[in-house]
Amino acid sequence: MKTKTDTIRVIIAKVGLDGHDRGVKIVARALRDGGMDVVYTGLHRTAEEVVDAAVQEDVDVLGVSLLSGAHMTIFPKILQLLKQKGADDILVVGGGVMPDDEAAELKKMGVKEILLQDTPPEVIVSTIRRLVAERGPK
Protein backbone atom coordinates (compact mmCIF):
# COMPACT_ATOMS: atom_id res chain seq x y z
CA MET A 1 0.00 0.00 0.00
CA LYS A 2 1.24 3.46 -0.80
CA THR A 3 1.42 4.75 2.67
CA LYS A 4 0.36 8.18 3.74
CA THR A 5 1.92 7.69 7.14
CA ASP A 6 4.95 9.66 6.18
CA THR A 7 3.13 12.84 5.20
CA ILE A 8 4.76 15.50 7.34
CA ARG A 9 2.30 17.67 9.26
CA VAL A 10 3.29 21.22 9.98
CA ILE A 11 1.39 23.99 11.71
CA ILE A 12 2.33 27.55 10.96
CA ALA A 13 1.33 30.34 13.26
CA LYS A 14 1.88 34.01 13.50
CA VAL A 15 2.12 35.21 17.05
CA GLY A 16 1.95 38.83 18.08
CA LEU A 17 0.54 41.97 16.67
CA ASP A 18 2.33 42.57 13.40
CA GLY A 19 -0.30 42.59 10.76
CA HIS A 20 0.62 40.86 7.52
CA ASP A 21 1.06 37.25 6.56
CA ARG A 22 2.40 37.35 3.04
CA GLY A 23 5.66 35.67 4.04
CA VAL A 24 3.90 32.97 6.01
CA LYS A 25 1.64 32.18 3.08
CA ILE A 26 4.62 31.79 0.77
CA VAL A 27 6.16 29.36 3.24
CA ALA A 28 2.86 27.46 3.53
CA ARG A 29 2.69 27.07 -0.23
CA ALA A 30 6.29 25.91 -0.47
CA LEU A 31 5.68 23.25 2.18
CA ARG A 32 2.49 22.10 0.48
CA ASP A 33 4.36 21.85 -2.82
CA GLY A 34 6.91 19.80 -0.91
CA GLY A 35 4.12 17.30 -0.16
CA MET A 36 3.39 18.32 3.43
CA ASP A 37 0.06 18.95 5.13
CA VAL A 38 0.22 22.52 6.40
CA VAL A 39 -2.23 23.79 8.98
CA TYR A 40 -2.40 27.54 8.87
CA THR A 41 -3.93 29.32 11.85
CA GLY A 42 -4.01 32.94 10.77
CA LEU A 43 -2.79 36.09 12.41
CA HIS A 44 -2.52 37.32 15.99
CA ARG A 45 -2.41 34.07 17.87
CA THR A 46 -1.33 33.75 21.47
CA ALA A 47 1.25 31.19 22.59
CA GLU A 48 -1.50 29.23 24.37
CA GLU A 49 -3.69 29.06 21.27
CA VAL A 50 -0.80 27.97 19.11
CA VAL A 51 0.23 25.19 21.46
CA ASP A 52 -3.34 23.92 21.84
CA ALA A 53 -3.75 23.86 18.08
CA ALA A 54 -0.42 22.08 17.60
CA VAL A 55 -1.42 19.39 20.11
CA GLN A 56 -4.85 18.81 18.55
CA GLU A 57 -3.40 18.71 15.06
CA ASP A 58 -0.69 16.26 16.14
CA VAL A 59 1.88 18.04 14.03
CA ASP A 60 5.48 17.05 13.55
CA VAL A 61 6.59 20.65 13.37
CA LEU A 62 5.35 23.88 14.89
CA GLY A 63 6.57 26.85 12.89
CA VAL A 64 6.20 30.21 14.56
CA SER A 65 6.85 33.41 12.72
CA LEU A 66 7.17 36.74 14.42
CA LEU A 67 8.52 40.06 13.43
CA SER A 68 7.49 41.99 16.48
CA GLY A 69 10.69 41.42 18.45
CA ALA A 70 8.96 39.47 21.22
CA HIS A 71 10.76 36.20 20.39
CA MET A 72 12.76 36.04 23.62
CA THR A 73 9.55 35.85 25.61
CA ILE A 74 7.26 33.97 23.20
CA PHE A 75 9.51 31.03 22.29
CA PRO A 76 10.37 30.12 25.90
CA LYS A 77 6.66 30.30 26.68
CA ILE A 78 5.78 27.99 23.78
CA LEU A 79 8.48 25.51 24.79
CA GLN A 80 7.27 25.54 28.37
CA LEU A 81 3.61 25.04 27.39
CA LEU A 82 4.53 22.14 25.11
CA LYS A 83 6.43 20.49 27.94
CA GLN A 84 3.52 21.05 30.31
CA LYS A 85 1.19 19.27 27.89
CA GLY A 86 3.59 16.39 27.35
CA ALA A 87 4.03 17.48 23.76
CA ASP A 88 7.67 18.48 23.73
CA ASP A 89 8.42 16.00 20.97
CA ILE A 90 6.85 18.55 18.61
CA LEU A 91 9.72 20.23 16.80
CA VAL A 92 9.65 24.01 17.17
CA VAL A 93 11.03 26.08 14.33
CA GLY A 94 11.21 29.86 14.43
CA GLY A 95 11.06 32.37 11.64
CA GLY A 96 11.36 36.10 11.29
CA VAL A 97 14.07 38.53 12.23
CA MET A 98 16.41 38.45 15.21
CA PRO A 99 20.08 38.93 16.04
CA ASP A 100 22.39 35.91 15.80
CA ASP A 101 23.18 35.71 19.50
CA GLU A 102 19.49 35.52 20.40
CA ALA A 103 18.91 32.87 17.74
CA ALA A 104 21.74 30.88 19.32
CA GLU A 105 20.23 31.27 22.75
CA LEU A 106 16.79 30.09 21.55
CA LYS A 107 18.40 27.03 20.02
CA LYS A 108 20.02 26.27 23.32
CA MET A 109 16.61 26.44 24.97
CA GLY A 110 15.20 23.86 22.56
CA VAL A 111 14.05 25.66 19.43
CA LYS A 112 15.22 23.27 16.72
CA GLU A 113 16.02 25.80 14.04
CA ILE A 114 15.74 29.51 13.34
CA LEU A 115 15.03 30.41 9.73
CA LEU A 116 15.60 34.09 9.20
CA GLN A 117 13.30 36.15 7.03
CA ASP A 118 15.27 35.80 3.78
CA THR A 119 15.66 32.00 3.89
CA PRO A 120 14.71 30.60 0.46
CA PRO A 121 11.55 28.43 0.52
CA GLU A 122 13.40 25.33 -0.72
CA VAL A 123 15.79 25.59 2.22
CA ILE A 124 12.84 25.78 4.59
CA VAL A 125 11.36 22.63 3.00
CA SER A 126 14.62 20.70 3.19
CA THR A 127 15.29 21.83 6.76
CA ILE A 128 11.91 20.57 7.93
CA ARG A 129 12.39 17.25 6.13
CA ARG A 130 15.78 16.86 7.79
CA LEU A 131 14.50 17.68 11.28
CA VAL A 132 11.63 15.20 10.99
CA ALA A 133 13.94 12.51 9.59
CA GLU A 134 16.36 13.03 12.49
CA ARG A 135 13.55 12.69 14.99
CA GLY A 136 12.36 9.41 13.49
CA PRO A 137 8.81 8.07 13.09
CA LYS A 138 5.98 9.34 15.23
Binding site: L31, R32, G34, V39, Y40, A53
Partner: peptide
Protein backbone atom coordinates in the same frame (compact mmCIF):
# COMPACT_ATOMS: atom_id res chain seq x y z
CA UNK B 1 2.35 17.37 -4.66
CA UNK B 2 -0.08 15.48 -2.42
CA UNK B 3 0.42 18.21 0.16
CA UNK B 4 -2.23 20.61 1.39
CA UNK B 5 -2.90 23.91 3.04
CA UNK B 6 -5.49 23.40 5.74
CA UNK B 7 -6.86 26.87 6.41
CA UNK B 8 -10.19 26.33 8.13
CA UNK B 9 -8.68 27.09 11.52
Amino acid sequence: SGGSILGDR
